[in-house]
Design a protein around this nucleic acid. Sequence first.
DNA 1: GTGAAAGCGCTAACAG
DNA 2: CTGTTAGCGCTTTCAC
Lengths: 341, 341
Amino acid sequence: MGKRITIYDLATELNVSPGTVSRALNNHPSISDTTKKKIILKARELGYRANQFAANLSNQKSSTIGVIVPKLNSNFMSTVLAGIEKVANKEGYNLIISQSLESWEKEKINTKTLYDSGVDALLVSLAYETEDYGHFDTFLKWKIPLLFFDRVHHLPNCTTILIDNQTAGFEATEHLIQQGCQNIMHISGSLKRNVYSGRFLGYKEALEKYGLPFKESNLLETDLDHEKMGEIISYVKDSSEKIDGIFVAGDMMAVQCIKHLQKAGFRIPEDVKIVGFNNDPVSEVISPSLTTIDYPGYKLGVLAGQSIISHLNGTIDIQSAESIILKHKLVVRESSLKKLN
Amino acid sequence: MGKRITIYDLATELNVSPGTVSRALNNHPSISDTTKKKIILKARELGYRANQFAANLSNQKSSTIGVIVPKLNSNFMSTVLAGIEKVANKEGYNLIISQSLESWEKEKINTKTLYDSGVDALLVSLAYETEDYGHFDTFLKWKIPLLFFDRVHHLPNCTTILIDNQTAGFEATEHLIQQGCQNIMHISGSLKRNVYSGRFLGYKEALEKYGLPFKESNLLETDLDHEKMGEIISYVKDSSEKIDGIFVAGDMMAVQCIKHLQKAGFRIPEDVKIVGFNNDPVSEVISPSLTTIDYPGYKLGVLAGQSIISHLNGTIDIQSAESIILKHKLVVRESSLKKLN
DNA sequence: GTGAAAGCGCTAACAG
DNA sequence: CTGTTAGCGCTTTCAC
């Protein structure tokens, strides 16, 4: 077994001081190339590995970025994470990832844990439940960069990255109207969250613009899981005024709607036209293929990573809080078309 | 701003020694409840947060588990990660997650980084490319628990967790044969990886058992992305002996096959029957719905997490390397049925 | 260009 | 039950 090699081992081996070894290993300018080479060679020979804890303790930084997401296993989130990981890794940062599972309690605990773990920065996409943001205070207080993405909340000096959900919701609904829908239902996620309230506002805005009435009963707040499917189907079935369009705030949910409506005898898009959200790969392969809003997750992740790392490197003035709005795009497919080609 | 509170601050505030503070905070038995209470209260009052680096340095452990996956953004992987995160979080471990992007080079670097970061254990699903396992030597040497999941390789004292890919491949192929297929193609991933070579062996085994010849040309090694789609379609089209079944080693790829074959005029399952692998949510909603092998990703993740944490807690004898085989299940849907109901 | 030494904040062995 | 003290391994200021 034997103990792990330290700079002291290298130092005694080479008859230099630990300080010199440290500087050599960190490529400090004031060390002669000869000794530098000598030390690096020896380090390699003995299989020296730096002890990050000691370095972190000394440096008061960890080269680690914390991430809290509601759920790891959604196509959108894992794509965002892939983007974040990509740039973090390239820039020499580790990623500690944890999930809140939509629970405020867990989000609080994870935030504390990540703070204690000494992350240099924190990236968060908020849980469904979160309405109180006190758990982020320590980050603000200690000026540890904090960034919200997708499910955001505006806190002083915190960057947010997301798309313009309201406009996206507007475009989705407008598209349905332009395809001839007159009585459009909206299936939303938790309206506490900006992403869903934004999409909902866009929906309402479109109705208004085209002189269609907004009916409270046409709005359904769900968890975007499949649980309320039965309720949705019966609502569509039993509605006195025929529902002819549905704007769903998530693709997986939209796909479920299509499936269940078809099973209930509705033809999509002839009877009911449907638009989803996110451009999940599934939207492309389903029958009929799903019209949706493309939300560039990977790019979002990359930008979030870059933004936070710039902060850390001091490239960007910490004070200049900013909001990055990504471009979305309505992707028209079969599920919403008046006439199939 | 001010400096961060340390145990020394608490100690001087309360006129006790730092040692006492440390013990109190760690709920050491030999501290009186009164002083314990007093210290904890003061800690809360001053907003004390432990410095993990110092604790780690002193303890020589990090309460952190490293994970390397080929790609974050696949349904299967993110589901596995969700499972791992769930138990790690519950047990007080952080997860550092990185992706190899199927590159041996990146896997090597990530392994080194995680080692340097002082992870207490490492969970790995191997990259496509990896054929040399030298980068894991340090972990073996220092007896840091190392576990492979899904894409595994057998190394001394390393647990592996996966399903029985060969049997699964056998069942998938056998099912196609039982549905009447006589000339079955197999679209595989990299045969260097156990998961794909296993599935392939199962495929061959089934052919053999039922007296069907194995044709080299019916085996296509791919990256399971969509790139070789054209090649596949033309092979099916131009084959002198009609291809009547395809066993695809991944669901997303299988779905693409269905889509492209349909576009090329083939009827699924009448002309060509298809079986996928993984039981990705998409397999259920596609038309025709996809017969596939259910690979319980979340459970795999949970088990992997539990297994490694037991090791760390010494609950399991470190020497007792083991191999955990999860149950898979053939899920029959429409894409492979002789007769649709 | 290099050495010496004082931390970084926490833990644990040893005293009392 | 509590205080003292010696590390853990690395960084960095201050001398030389």
